[in-house]
Amino acid sequence: MKKFALHIFALLVLISTLLFVCDLTYTRIYTNCHPRNKLQYILQLKNEQFDAVFLGSSRVANHIDVELFSQLSHKKAINLGVEGAGLNDNLLQLQLLLAQNKVKQLYLQVDSNLESTGPSNISQAEAMPFIKNKLVKEHTQKYFTGFDQLYYIPFYRYAVNDAKIGFRELFFSAFNKKPAIDPAIGYTPKYGNSIPAGKSTTMEAKGLVAKNPILTHIKNLCQQNHTELVLFMTPICSKIDVKPYVCKLKEMEPKLIDLTQGFDDSLFYNCGHLNDSGAKILTRRLYEATKK
């Protein structure tokens, strides 16, 4: 039995060593590779000054053509919208961006993302290689239940997020494979038109939280950094009546720029996302609505 216990001990030491070495290798590669997502890109930005930064989910990534916006406004702009991102993720993005850069205007997409305060894919996965970063650590500690495992168990953060930052992504990062979406541009147009068949419905506003703490945090952050905050809502196809929702939202955020009206269904890629033609119109309208 003693021999067996020694054997098991040796095996556990071997496994621990492998976990430690893997953790070290993964972290080293992710912190030194060319950015393959917008969070990595933000972390590598230093001493930049942006006139306009767009934050939100895919409804920013697919909707704001920053090149067009820059042409119209002659401003240095960047689209940091990420598919699946929530307000919590946007907060982390903003904190990291403002830590080493300056932002004059922040355009933040708000709609149903106000209904939630929890983290989603960016904070849960893409930020994990950078958990030793003070801001990421604080954010994870504040909003995650399993912080200790993520922080202290070697490789745990990579294992539980294997689909996003696992071996496959590591391999691409190690060989500096160009990502499908260039994080420096940020705009990811959609093409085509496929509005689903079915009855029209009304978007319920029951879940809207009167004072979302994440939004309050973002507002405070903007104030501290002298960044002007612009809240805007992008359109949804005619199958969904968003008027009551927008009314409620406007009551809560009177300065909200409502861009939900006046988009024909032919401009939609699907019910929640405009296609490239629609995105260009939206970008122009947003520019018109905010130009001074």
């Binding site: 689903p196 079915g198 019910c271």
Partner: peptide, 14 residues
């Protein structure tokens, strides 16, 4: 179901 769960028409796109 998108926006409302009352519609009842389920297909891949919605």
């Amino acid at each position: 179901l998108c926006a409302s769960q009352k519609s009842g028409s389920l297909n891949n796109s919605n």
